Amino acid sequence: MRVVIAGAGAVGRSVAAELLENGHEVLLIDKSPQAVSVERVPEAEWLLADACEIAALDEAALERCQVVIAASGDDKVNLVVSLLAKTEYGVPRVVARVNHPKNEWLFNDAWGVDVAVSTPRLMSALVEEAVSIGDLVRLMRFSQGEANLVELTLPEGAALVGTRVGEVAWPQDTALVTIIRGARVLIPDPDDALAAGDELLFVAAPASEGRLEDLLSPRGQKRPREDPGDRA
Results as ranks from 00 to 15, higher is better:
127 V>W: 15
124 S>A: 08
22 N>C: 06
61 A>L: 11
49 A>T: 05
21 E>W: 14
42 P>F: 06
85 A>G: 01
28 L>K: 07
91 V>A: 02
35 A>F: 14
42 P>D: 03
24 H>E: 13
86 K>V: 02
116 A>P: 12
102 K>I: 08
89 Y>C: 01
39 E>W: 13
75 D>N: 13
97 R>H: 04
78 N>W: 02
44 A>W: 04
48 L>D: 01
114 D>L: 06
29 I>L: 14
86 K>F: 04
114 D>G: 04
66 Q>P: 08
59 E>N: 14
85 A>T: 03
95 V>I: 15
77 V>C: 13
108 N>M: 07
35 A>N: 11
78 N>F: 00
45 E>S: 11
111 W>R: 04
90 G>D: 10
50 D>Q: 11
56 A>S: 15
81 V>N: 00
137 V>Q: 05
88 E>Q: 12
132 S>E: 15
137 V>W: 13
73 G>A: 03
21 E>M: 12
115 V>F: 04
90 G>H: 02
21 E>C: 05
136 L>V: 13
32 S>N: 14
133 I>D: 09
72 S>F: 05
104 E>R: 13
36 V>F: 08
98 V>H: 02
116 A>D: 10
84 L>T: 01
103 N>Y: 12
93 R>S: 09
110 A>P: 00
71 A>T: 05
121 R>N: 12
100 H>C: 07
56 A>I: 01
34 Q>W: 11
33 P>F: 10
87 T>R: 10
32 S>R: 12
87 T>K: 08
110 A>R: 14
115 V>I: 15
63 E>Y: 11
41 V>H: 01
118 S>L: 04
24 H>Q: 10
122 L>P: 02
71 A>M: 03
116 A>Y: 06
77 V>S: 15
38 V>D: 06
44 A>Q: 07
37 S>V: 09
77 V>Q: 08
36 V>K: 03
89 Y>I: 00
73 G>S: 05
26 V>W: 03
131 V>L: 14
139 L>R: 10
126 L>S: 11
53 E>I: 03
50 D>A: 08
107 F>D: 12
97 R>W: 00
127 V>Q: 13
99 N>Q: 11
27 L>M: 13
34 Q>Y: 10
54 I>Q: 10
114 D>M: 04
90 G>N: 08
36 V>A: 03
96 A>D: 02
117 V>S: 02
79 L>G: 03
40 R>Q: 11
68 V>M: 02
94 V>H: 00
104 E>M: 10
54 I>A: 07
28 L>F: 11
81 V>E: 00
32 S>C: 06
98 V>L: 05
116 A>L: 10
110 A>Q: 11
